[in-house]
Amino acid sequence: MKRFAALASFLAILSLTVALMGGMLAKVAEHPGLPREVGDLPSWFAGETTAMRRAPSLSAPAEKAPAPVEEGRAAADKSTVADDYVEVAGGEIKIALKEYRLVPDKIRVRPGRLAITFVLRNEGRFAHNFHIEGPDVDARASKFGPGNTVRLEVTLKEGEYKISCPLSNHDKRGMHGTLLVTSQPKEG
């Protein structure tokens, strides 16, 4: 009986000690009080590194970003269209957003599959949004941060639509484009 009591109290004291140590360690890890040595601090612009981590394509924007354009160009070449519009069959349209442009920014959709899902990927440094307005449509996604992708579903009809980022001066700085729903190549 005595041995059992001794063992129990030993265990109780041990667990209390470990609990206290654990608590203190957690506290210190949470708030060391002072910044650690410079070498241990995260790289200076946390925003940039974070955006890059969350958007792997950001580290190689030159290779990744123009991809949709090239695909589009190839498709356009095949259909012998002389202007710089990207031909899209409808259904899903991928657009990359960055400072301060949309890639691609000139899109032509053949009438047919006009229930469109925009897949919008923020490849920039700042939050962006997407706005499409035209015949019977005035729709916008909700603001999304770098590295994030959102989807916006709209139903289009024949006509010309303006696509843009509605945030502050992004549109004015070049984040806009045109989406045409037509079976005709653009004139002029």
Partner: peptide, 12 residues
């Protein structure tokens, strides 16, 4: 306007 780089935090 205000936006914080690398995040979705902003004045919108």
């Amino acid at each position: 306007n205000v936006t914080i780089e690398g995040t979705e935090i902003g004045s919108e």
